[in-house]
Design a protein around this nucleic acid. Structure first.
Lengths: 142, 142
DNA sequence: CCTATAATTAGTAAAATTATCATTTGAACT
DNA sequence: AGTTCAAATGATAATTTTACTAATTATAGG
């Protein structure tokens, strides 16, 4: 999806197109690797030196809730990473419990048996599958 | 799996069976709902008043890496929760982006279309699937 | 039973993430 | 252009999680 379309989509949902927000979005859309909140902030600071980390987190949350960004948790290791999710580019992750490395998977391997092609030696121990959205009571409220 | 068997399994992997660790494990195995680290600590403190939160986190991490515990992240909301994963009881979660409620799923719904039976009104917006284990280089090192 | 060793613990500090709130600002409407 | 209002920002504090280290302890072996 192009930037213009995404901005339009945000506006339709009642979100304001602040300069900081647009900068964050552009940075995520252009990055080829998932980024931490701190990395995003450092890039944003080039054009908006006073941007707060809080603003970055709030925008990452909003974009996640819009389904435009995916957050990957590194299974109890350091900072989580955020990644723009272009339409049709949905994919999953294999995360090393030892070094925290996150490997993008184009295909879903057989749980507990598969070997991701990106790292054929990867030993899968388990997996988590989390769906997110809105429960019935929250949907009513909004 | 029974407590005794789990303890045996830990021992085989070279882990020591400290009283704190056994307490944490028992609490997780008996709990019917996923617990936060703080909640676990509060229960442990009844028998070990001086237990540190750090110890709780370290044990939760170790148990996660053993595949005995599942950590659910509440998509950017407050504390994550930990749940003992009995053999054959593997299941997934639906998490509300608004209130953070976590619903356990016995079956995997159709992504972006399904309605979990536990909350037929739940609106699924997206999902994350993360495999964890050990990458080839870390496997060699150990 | 005693010793040696590595794992674990508790304490502390640091880092990551979320909450709160006063102020600012984009957007819609005059 | 001016006004209004809700959303967003930045500052700060609080909470959650991780990192580091010295002291303790479970366990294996003598």
């Amino acid at each position: 999806m192009q930037l213009e379309q995404v901005l339009k989509q945000l506006k339709e949902k009642g979100h304001k197109l602040t300069p900081q927000r647009q900068s964050i979005l552009k940075i995520l859309m252009m990055s080829k690797v998932p980024m931490t909140a701190l990395e995003v902030r450092q890039k944003v600071q080039k054009s908006h030196p006073r941007v707060s980390l809080n603003t970055v987190y709030l925008n990452l949350l909003m974009l996640t809730q819009m389904g435009l960004v995916i957050q990957t948790h590194l299974q109890n290791r350091t900072a989580s990473r955020f990644e723009y999710q272009a339409e049709g580019s949905h994919h999953h992750h294999a995360i090393c419990l030892s070094c925290g490395k996150s490997i993008c998977l184009d295909h879903v391997p057989e749980p507990k048996a598969g070997k991701p092609e990106e790292d054929p030696g990867f030993q899968i121990l388990g997996h988590t599958l989390e769906f997110y959205g809105y429960c019935s009571s929250c949907k009513k409220a909004s």
